[in-house]
Amino acid sequence: MYVEDAKILIDTPEDIAYALNHADIKAVDYILYSHIDPDHTMGMRVIEQLRLDWLANSIGSICRNPIIVASLPSIIKDLRCQGTKYGSALDYYESLNLVSSQAITSLELTSMHIDLIPVDSSANVTIFVFTQDSNKVIYAPCDVKPFPENDIFRDADCLIIGNTIVGDVLKDGFILENDNPLREELFVIDEIIELKSKYHIKKVIITHLEEDWGKSYDDYKELQKQFNEIEFAYDGLEINY
């Protein structure tokens, strides 16, 4: 996810450099992390591609516009565990002034306000709430079940949510039985409809789409005709309010 208003990137999966180029994104000023699962963090080296200038560094010139890396305090702490035998990658980037890390629960920018809502008391997973003027967008990318109770979600214009099983018949005809443990971890569409109704959310976009759901782009396009204001994400989808 990229927020154009403030050049905010949320999470760095392994192929984030490819995704940034594919989306023709020119600048990143902030990186916010939702949680530390590898598929959301293992592309952290994109920080080097965004800011590191080895030649300038070799003559003592330091980076003058560090990326703000921000997240909930417990997640920043865990992020420091990502690294190699040489130590923490985040610490290394800070030592070169490529980044400045901040443990936050909200972020006030000139263009918008962002609240970071912990999914549970461990505060290891984040739901982002973007507010600008009278518009509100919720981004809940991963591991957000059970969805927390919080009035801040009420009357949002859009909820972008991951981890939803799409359909009962999945890849290669796999039938998801009622007792399948995935149902504990992931939402099904009916639960998304309930969530949308509970918080009076105008529109839902389902993302983090797994190949295991066994559906093509055309399948998703056809499927979303069945629902009221529930759509499926694709790379390049723009959300404007």
């Binding site: 208003d5 192929d15 918008m112 600008q132 976009i205 789409l209 390049g236 723009e238 959300i239």
Partner: peptide
Amino acid sequence: MRLKIIGS
């Protein structure tokens, strides 16, 4: 507000 999905 302008957001773009880049990793669906």
